[in-house]
Design a protein around this nucleic acid. Structure first.
Ligand SMILES: [Zn+2]
Ligand SMILES: [Zn+2]
Ligand SMILES: [Zn+2]
Ligand SMILES: [Zn+2]
Lengths: 135, 135
DNA sequence: CTTATAAATGTTATATTATTACATAGTGTT
DNA sequence: AACACTATGTAATAATATAACATTTATAAG
């Protein structure tokens, strides 16, 4: 059996795969220039090559950007159907970041409307506190 | 009658006041170097002077940072008692940013606990969509 | 008022994060 | 082949943010 349509949609180019693999196996969010340093041995030499791959990976939901940290983490919600609805917890001591997957939270936020009745197509939520270890 | 304690707590230094005034009268979030450019005539010449004032203003809740935009907006929740609980709506076309003040939302998020029972001391939420004008 | 302390400022240099511009190469479709 | 689209390579530069150090100003205590 060949490559299914859904696989093709999510198939990654060479640079994208290299950079995704690195992020995916990292226990912590990675910054763009940390990524660059770590993939230079694989032939990726310039910042732009990294940023282009990151942009694409974010777009297709394989990774998320932690905005408050300018860092990138792999999605662990089965290749995020919620690329447009992200929530993270961030420890302010050890900087551990965890993707939150809560049906209640997603539902609440997806249905949230402000006073103007503005409906949102996307959100990003970052919680800060102390993780178990650091408490 | 003199300066009350609460006023003193929130009293701003010269640079802080200059920069707060600029942000406060701006209809849109301002970026650090835009601020720098606009206060050079008032004697603030270096990025660090701007960033120091911004740090302090964020700390005391007079302004908030819009993380996804690297820009700063004045707090309009009566000098934010919720500096640690911020929510914004952002128009992806015109980049208009509005601070959301919803008792329901604040309450929901303040009480949110993840699977680990981690309790959070702070959060930042950014909604993205189209504003009235851009729809 | 004097001394001590913390907060703020001024200045230069540098680090970090991200994009512009342009040329080239691969991939899939008709 | 011709076309459109995506991805890559490379150099230069723009935009965002911090380090290090010297000095000054504000606050509080004795
Ligand atoms: Zn995800
Ligand atoms: Zn921790
Ligand atoms: Zn506020
Ligand atoms: Zn708009």
């Amino acid at each position: 059996m060949g490559i299914s349509k859904i696989d093709k949609m999510h198939s990654l180019s060479k640079n994208q795969q290299i950079i995704f693999d690195l992020i995916n196996k990292s226990p912590e969010p990675l910054k763009a220039y940390t990524i660059l340093f770590n993939v230079q041995k694989k032939g990726i030499k310039a910042p732009l090559q990294v940023y282009r791959a990151l942009d694409k990976l974010v777009e297709i939901g394989k990774i998320h950007k932690i905005e408050s940290r300018n860092a990138f983490i792999a999605c662990h919600n089965s290749s995020c159907q919620v690329a447009k609805a992200t929530a993270f917890s961030i420890c302010e001591i050890c900087e551990k970041v965890t993707e939150i997957s809560s049906a209640g939270l997603s539902k609440y936020l997806a249905n949230f409307k402000d006073k103007d009745g503005m409906k949102y197509s996307k959100y990003n939520l970052e919680f800060f506190g102390l993780c178990k270890k650091c408490r």
